[in-house]
Nucleic acid binder design. Structure first.
Length: 771
DNA sequence: CGTTGGGGGGTTTTT
DNA sequence: CCCCCCAACG
C-alpha cells in the first residue's frame, strides 16, 4: 500500500481535487499526522471531508475498512457515505466504520459485550425507557419523587456519563446533587438494573467502550492498528466521553496518529448537553505537531450577511478566531425591524413571504428560525389562516411517538422474554384489565424469584395468586405471545407485525379513540410497517431502530421551513427570518442565569449560526410586547442587535412595509408602534458613536448577568427630550395592549403602571398615551 | 378501571 | 397560558 507524504501523488485520477481552493486542497492532502480543520460556516466543510476520504481511498493509502469516520447524526453519516460513493465510483459499500459515535460504539460493544457483563444481544434503551426505569428505582429507595424527579436524575446520570464517569468515580459533592447525597447510590442501582435487563442507555454505549479499552489494552491495540485514518466531524460538539474515546482510539503505537478533526468553535451550540468547546480549543496540545488549516472563504452568503455575523461573533472572548470572507459583494443588508407583538411579527413575516413568492421565488427557499419552539405557535396560526404552506422541522421524532414505542414494545416482547420494560409497557395496552396492583404483584414476584416479568406471569397464573379478570387476561395475553412467536418463525416480519397490532387490539384501540390525533397515529403505524419492510428481518430492524431509524419526510414540497435554531445547523436558505430577538428570549434568560458568561457566549454562537444560514437575505425582528406564560410583558431588543455592525444593517420600519405591500392596515396601534420604533432606531443609530452609547456599552458589560431590564440606556431608549418626563405618578394612561391604568412609578423611559384589567406591568413610555 | 380536575412547571436535542 | 402528570373519585 502506497503510504507517504501527502501530495506526492496527485495525478490525473484525482479529478475531485479540481475546484478546491488552496486551503481546502491542503486539508484534503495532509493525510498524515494529526490535523485540525477549522471550517467556518459555509466554507465547504463537507466537500473537504468527502474529498479527503476519497483521496485516501483513491491513493490506496487504506482499505475502506481501515478508516474510522464519525459524525453526530445519522443524516450526516448517510450524506457522507453517499458523497464519498459518488467520488470514488460507488465502491464504498465497505466503509463499515463510518457512522455516528453511538452506532460505531454499539458495533464495538456487541463484539465485546461480555467484558462488561452484557450479552451481545443487549437492547438499547431510549430516554423514555430510561426514565421509567429510574422512576422505579427512586420509588424503591423511598425518595420523594416530586422533590427529586426521575427526569432530573436521568439528566444527572447522563451528564456523568458524558464526562466518562462510572458510579465509583462520582465525587461526594456530585453525588450530593440528588436526594441529599444519594446520587451515586442511585446511579449504581440503575447500572445494576440495566445489566440485569441486558440493556444499556445511549451514554453507556461509549462508556462501556471506554471501560473495555482501559481494562483490555490488547483489544484497544487491535483497534489502534486497525484504524489507519480517523475522521471526526463537528468536533466542537464532542463531549468528554467522546473525546476520551477518540483519544484512546487515536493512540498509535510508534507513528503519529492520522486523526483529522473538523469543526468550528464558533458553531458550538450544544454545551448544555455536555459538549466541550475546549476539546477543539486545545486540539493542538492534545496532539503535538498537529497541523491546523483554517477554511475562511465562504461560498454561501453575501458580504453583508457575513459582515453582520462576523461582527456579532467578535464579541465572544473564548474563540480561536477566524474571519470569513467572500467574493459575493453587494446584496441586501441584514434587516432589523421592531414590531408590536408576536401576532404582528407573524403577520409581517407571512407578508414578506408572500412577497417573496409573488416575486417568483419559492416557499422552500425560506426558513424561520426560532430560539424556542413555543415561538412557533404564532407563525403556525398565521400560516394556517393564510393557507401558507409550511412544515415544522424537528419536533417529536417518529420513533419517540407513543404508538411507535408501543408497537416496538410488542416486537421486543416477541423477540425476547426478558425485556421487562417492553413487557410492562404493553401488557395492559390496550386495556386488558390488568391494573396497577397486578403489575406490582408481578414485579414483586419476579424480583423474588429472580426471573423476568414474563416468566413471573407464567408462574403466577398457574396458581391462585392472581384472581379474576386480571388472571384470565394475563393467561390470554401469554397465549397470544406464544402464538405470535410461533408464527414469527414462518411469517415475514412485516406480516407478523401487522398481525400483532391487529390481534392484540392495538389498532382497534386507536380506531375507537375519540382523540383527534388517532388518525395520525394509525398512519404512523402504517409507516412503521413500511420502514420495517426496508430491513430483511425483524432482528435487523430492531438492531437499527434505536440508533438509526428516521423516516424520510417524503417528496419535497414547496413549503416554508419553521424550526429552532439548533435544528438549523448545517442547513442553508436564501431567505432567513430570525424573529424574537429580545433580551430574555434570545439570549435566553435561563442560559445566562445558569451559565453566566459561557451561557451568553453560547447564545451568541447560536445567533451566529442563525445569521450564517442565510444566503441572500437575513431578517431580524423584535417585539415590544411578548406574552410570557400567559401574562404580557414589555420586552427590549436583544443586545445581539446592538452588536451587529451598523454598516451591514438596515433598520426597517413597519410603516415602510405596509406602504410597500400596498395594504392598508388601519389598526392604529400597529402604525403607532411602527413609527415609534422608527424613531427609536434613528435615536439609537445616532447614539452609537455618542458618549452615551459608549457608556451604555461599558455598563452593559459590567452589568452582565443582572436582569437586562435594569440596564440603562438601551438602544430603544429615547433621547432625554422625549415625552417620558411628562408622565407623572398617579396619571391615568392608556396602553394599546393593557388598556387603562394609573402610573405608579417612573424610571427613565420605563413606567410602572397599575392597569385596571391587566394588573401591574412595567411598560415603555412610548407605548402609553394620556387619556 | 377510567375519567376529571388540581397542581406544578415551562430552552435548546441527538443518539 | 398550556401541557403533562398524578391523585382522587365515580
Amino acid at each position: 500500500m502506497a503510504r507517504g507524504p501527502a501530495g506526492q501523488n496527485t495525478g490525473d485520477s484525482s479529478a475531485y481535487l479540481e475546484g478546491l481552493n488552496p486551503e481546502q486542497r491542503d486539508a484534503v492532502l495532509s493525510t498524515e499526522g494529526p490535523l485540525l480543520v477549522l471550517a467556518g460556516a459555509g466554507t465547504g466543510k463537507t466537500r473537504v471531508l468527502t474529498c479527503r476520504l476519497a483521496h485516501i481511498l483513491n491513493q490506496g493509502q487504506a482499505y475502506p475498512s481501515q478508516i474510522l469516520s464519525v459524525t453526530f447524526t445519522n443524516k450526516a453519516a448517510r450524506e457522507m457515505k453517499e458523497r464519498v460513493g459518488d467520488l470514488v465510483g460507488g465502491a464504498v459499500e465497505g466503509m463499515p466504520w463510518m457512522g455516528t459515535f453511538h452506532s460505531i460504539a454499539a458495533k464495538i460493544l456487541r463484539i465485546h459485550a461480555e467484558l462488561v457483563d452484557l450479552k451481545s444481544s443487549f437492547t438499547i434503551l431510549d430516554t423514555d425507557d430510561q426514565i421509567r426505569l429510574l422512576k422505579q428505582i427512586i420509588k424503591a429507595h423511598n425518595i420523594d419523587e416530586k422533590r427529586w424527579t426521575a427526569r432530573y436524575l436521568a439528566n444527572l446520570i447522563d451528564s456523568w456519563k458524558n464526562k466518562g464517569l462510572l458510579p465509583d468515580k462520582i465525587s461526594a459533592g456530585d453525588s450530593h446533587s440528588f436526594a441529599d447525597g444519594k446520587g451515586r447510590e442511585l446511579y449504581k442501582a440503575y447500572q445494576t438494573r440495566l445489566t440485569q435487563l441486558n440493556a444499556c442507555d445511549f451514554g453507556d454505549l461509549l462508556l462501556h467502550n471506554l471501560t473495555i479499552f482501559q481494562n483490555y489494552p490488547d483489544i484497544l491495540k487491535k483497534y489502534n492498528s486497525k484504524f489507519r485514518y480517523m475522521l471526526v466531524d463537528e468536533y466542537q460538539d464532542t463531549n468528554v466521553c467522546q473525546y476520551l474515546w477518540l483519544r484512546l482510539l487515536a493512540q498509535n503505537s510508534g507513528g503519529s496518529s492520522n486523526i483529522c478533526v473538523v469543526g468550528d468553535d464558533d458553531q458550538s451550540i450544544y454545551g448544555w448537553r455536555g459538549a466541550e468547546v475546549d476539546n477543539i480549543l486545545r486540539f493542538e496540545k492534545d496532539f503535538p505537531g498537529a497541523k491546523v488549516v483554517k477554511l475562511e472563504r465562504n461560498y454561501r452568503s453575501t458580504e453583508h450577511i457575513l459582515g453582520a455575523a462576523s461582527g456579532l461573533i467578535r464579541a465572544n472572548q473564548d474563540r480561536l478566531g477566524k474571519t470569513l470572507w467572500t467574493e459575493d459583494k453587494g446584496g441586501n443588508k441584514v434587516s432589523v425591524m421592531g414590531v408590536w407583538d408576536a401576532p404582528a411579527e407573524a403577520r409581517i413575516i407571512a407578508g414578506e413571504i408572500e412577497n417573496w413568492k409573488s416575486n417568483g421565488r419559492r416557499y422552500s427557499e425560506v426558513a424561520i428560525l426560532v430560539r424556542a419552539s413555543r415561538q412557533m405557535r404564532s407563525f403556525e396560526e398565521r400560516f394556517i389562516t393564510l393557507g401558507l404552506p409550511y412544515k415544522v422541522i424537528g419536533g417529536p421524532r417518529f420513533f419517540e411517538r407513543a404508538e411507535i414505542r408501543d408497537a416496538h414494545a410488542y416486537l421486543r416482547v416477541l423477540k425476547s422474554d426478558t425485556d421487562d420494560l417492553a413487557f410492562e409497557r404493553i401488557v395492559n395496552t390496550p386495556k386488558r384489565g390488568i391494573g396497577n396492583t397486578t403489575i406490582q404483584k408481578l414485579q414483586l414476584a419476579a424480583r423474588a424469584m429472580g426471573v423476568s416479568l414474563e416468566t413471573a406471569v407464567r408462574e403466577l397464573t398457574k396458581t391462585d395468586e392472581i384472581r379474576g379478570k386480571a388472571r384470565t387476561s394475563l393467561k390470554a395475553f401469554i397465549l397470544d405471545v406464544d402464538r405470535w412467536r410461533k408464527e414469527a418463525e414462518t411469517l415475514p416480519h412485516t406480516d407478523i407485525a401487522e398481525r400483532i397490532l391487529d390481534e392484540s387490539g392495538y389498532t382497534q384501540m386507536w380506531k375507537d379513540s375519540k382523540d383527534a390525533k388517532s388518525a395520525g397515529r394509525l398512519e404512523n403505524l402504517k409507516e412503521l410497517i413500511q420502514a420495517m419492510s426496508e430491513f430483511p428481518t425483524l432482528d435487523a430492524y430492531l438492531e437499527h431502530v434505536s440508533l438509526v431509524l428516521d423516516v424520510d419526510s417524503g417528496p419535497k414540497e414547496d413549503e416554508v421551513s419553521l424550526m429552532t435554531l439548533h435544528s438549523a445547523k448545517g442547513l442553508e436558505f436564501p431567505l432567513v427570518f430570525l424573529p424574537g430577538m429580545e433580551e430574555g428570549i434570545f439570549p435566553s434568560q435561563k442560559s445566562m442565569d445558569e451559565n453566566g458568561l459561557a451561557g451568553l457566549e453560547e447564545e451568541r454562537r447560536l445567533a451566529y449560526v442563525g445569521i450564517t444560514r442565510a444566503r441572500e437575505q437575513a431578517k431580524i425582528y423584535f417585539a415590544a410586547n411578548r406574552q410570557v406564560y400567559g401574562s404580557w410583558q414589555s420586552s427590549i431588543p436583544s443586545r445581539f442587535i446592538d452588536e451587529l455592525p451598523p454598516q451591514h444593517v438596515e433598520v426597517e420600519s413597519e410603516t415602510g412595509y405596509f406602504e410597500q405591500a400596498g395594504r392598508k392596515q388601519s389598526s392604529d396601534y400597529v402604525m403607532e408602534a411602527a413609527s415609534r420604533f422608527a424613531d427609536s432606531f434613528e435615536a439609537a443609530k445616532s447614539q452609537r458613536t455618542s458618549p452615551g452609547w459608549q457608556r451604555y456599552q461599558e455598563n452593559r458589560n459590567k452589568n452582565f448577568g443582572r436582569a437586562p431590564k435594569e440596564i440603562e440606556g438601551h438602544a430603544v431608549k429615547r433621547p432625554a427630550a422625549n415625552k417620558s418626563s411628562n408622565f407623572k405618578v398617579g396619571e391615568r394612561i392608556f396602553h394599546q395592549k393593557f388598556g387603562y391604568g394609573t402610573v405608579t412609578e417612573t424610571n427613565g423611559t420605563k413606567l410602572s403602571v397599575s392597569f385596571e384589567k391587566a394588573g401591574d406591568k412595567m411598560v415603555l413610555d412610548s407605548f402609553v398615551e394620556r387619556t
